[in-house]
Design a protein around this nucleic acid. Structure first.
Lengths: 354, 354
DNA sequence: CTGTTAGCGCCTTCAA
DNA sequence: TTGAAGGCGCTAACAG
């Protein structure tokens, strides 16, 4: 037995000299409604404290068919630096609603996913959050049909399951606007569009960028294709620069691409943001570690986790539609100041730009 | 009710034409022991499949006082890119032992911690993992006394509670050895020792480094103090280089320090690894993103999570002592090749060193 | 080999 | 205002 001695409601009632019914009412906050005597209430509360009584939620759940526990099934969300914020947000929201989270990671294996669904159903969770690390269109496992479920960072267009997604198109607009606000109106290139990629964020971000520029009659100057990693971005941008290209601004489709882009720009002796402005997507820690600090449109992982839990607990609000969460701009120092033309910002103390 | 219709063991037994007892024995794998007829077993299994029956674990737990669920209470482990690996490891190990993890994040608030302990006790978890993001010496919350618990990445010297910690001293030796193996035997400095810091990893890593060098009669050339972040490290190392110091190798006490160090070395026009070798601790993703890739002694978070769960499930093995987990060296390209003296490695295709 | 029975701890209808 | 009693779904003596 993991915990010393088990104290039951009967023990409490006995010690307080009342019936378990009375004790139960009091502990469930129904003493007023049931007009329990103040005296009885006091004695029960004293007994609870004296005995360090904790209700057995399994017993309660058996009666009430509710567990105050929600399941969170993810592919790799717990790992990696990115989507783990979703976990934190979900956890905080669950805590705020007096719930606990039981989690499971599939590591991409559908069989494990099915297993986890079963395990959670057997534990009578009040609902399941189905989350993915990367924003994707995906089929909700059949096992989940009939369960109360909210999809996090993914969606199944075929089903009417509520989903929470970052508002990528608006995010793209925000990125573009951050450049326009600095007076940059030409020579804007995108880094990262990769035709092979199945994920859904890239095209949406690109669409938002194009929309925003288009409204100002500005043409996107071009797209540099590469896979979404540091090395591929470095290789692609370095090669592109060697071909003599010179951008005013680069919109990197994620922070790792931006890191590779920084390395390539540096290799070419181009100063950020003096000669080239850079804006990115993700808003990861990495953005704040780069020099100069990277301006990035953040994926609102914590907010998505929070909303996911709230929707799970409020089916009316959830409906069966998709909920878009705005992407906040995390300002860094990688976009040139609007007043300057081609020079960099003044150097801070102890800074060097090489 | 989150899930459609509830099927009970009684339904299964009825459909199979046996008693619930028989059905129960069969489903718990005791049919051989109880010598149940093959015919009965087949009918029961058919019924289970036909009805899509799932046992109600709450009911079972009420009887057995065991939940196949373990609690994981952390400060910020879910967030951040580092310790989340612990969660993954714990999750995988739990899965392997047919358990599920229920998690809670305290966000550093002891009151929330107490609350979470209560919530988990109420849910009758089989044990609790108490984990911290940073390796620390800390007091186990009083609420946990009497619970089956394993401390992860932290320990309470006053209590005889089993703990899992990275083997930092050996890690320090490994870092030092990686330099010695490259023929570097002088001009070795450490970056990051910060006298103000309460955490425990720094001194241990430093001790390991000193031990290893000392055995070869090599003196550590010096220590550059700074807080454990990118900016502070950049500032400290840049200032130190400006004073004319020129190291053979820098041992950075974590990867973010190494990133700042890279930036400072670059600012001073010093090539890594051609002119200065760098080795670090953490083994985070960041290490693989830097150019050249950073050689880093990894904190074995996943392995720690695995071991934590295993110990929680096996008290005999756990005992009441501290279990050290070895830190693996993640090789990068930031240490000069042993055959070369001061030149860098040959450039790969598409690479530039500026 | 299988069925009957008695709880696990809690909530809740019904009576008093 | 309080108490008695039944049952949530499952397991495990104890009989047959």
């Amino acid at each position: 037995v993991p915990f010393s001695r088990r104290v039951t409601l009967t023990d409490v009632a006995e010690r307080a000299g009342v019936s378990t019914t009375t004790a139960s009412y009091i502990l469930n906050g129904r003493s007023a409604q049931m007009r329990i005597s103040a005296e009885a209430e006091r004695r029960v509360r004293d007994a609870v404290a004296a005995l360090d009584y904790r209700p057995n939620r399994n017993a309660r759940s058996l009666r009430t068919a509710t567990t105050s526990t929600i399941g969170l099934i993810t592919d790799y969300v717990a790992s990696g630096m990115f989507a783990s914020g979703m976990l934190s947000g979900a956890n905080a929201a669950a805590r705020a609603a007096n719930h606990l989270l039981v989690i499971g990671e599939t590591e991409g294996d559908a069989a494990i996913g099915d297993l986890l669904v079963d395990e959670m159903r057997e534990r009578q969770v009040d609902g399941i959050l189905y989350a993915t690390r990367t924003t994707v269109r995906t089929a909700l496992p059949k096992r989940m049909r009939g369960a109360r479920v909210v999809m996090l960072n993914c969606h199944d267009p075929a089903l009417g399951v509520p989903a929470v997604l970052p508002d990528e198109v608006s995010g793209g607009r925000i990125a573009a606007e951050s450049l326009l606000a600095a007076g940059i109106d030409h020579g804007i290139f995108v880094v990262g569009e990769d035709p092979d990629r199945g994920a859904v964020a890239g095209p949406l971000r690109l669409a938002g960028i194009r929309d925003c520029l288009g409204e100002r009659d500005i043409r996107l100057a071009g797209v540099i294709s590469c896979a979404w990693g540091v090395e591929p971005a470095y290789d692609a941008v370095a090669a592109w620069l060697r071909r003599g290209n010179r951008p005013e601004a680069l919109v990197c489709l994620n922070d790792r691409i931006a890191m590779g882009t920084y390395q390539a720009l540096e290799g070419a002796g181009l100063d950020v943001p003096g000669e080239v402005s850079v804006v990115s997507f993700d808003g990861s820690d990495l953005a704040s570690w780069l020099r100069p600090r990277l301006t990035s449109v953040a994926i609102p992982f914590p907010a998505m986790g929070v909303l996911g839990v709230e929707l799970l607990l409020d089916p009316v609000r959830a409906g069966s539609s998709t909920h878009l969460v705005p992407m906040p701009l995390v300002a860094g120092d990688s976009i040139r100041s609007s007043s300057l033309k081609t020079n960099g910002l003044p150097l801070g103390p102890g800074e060097s730009r090489l």
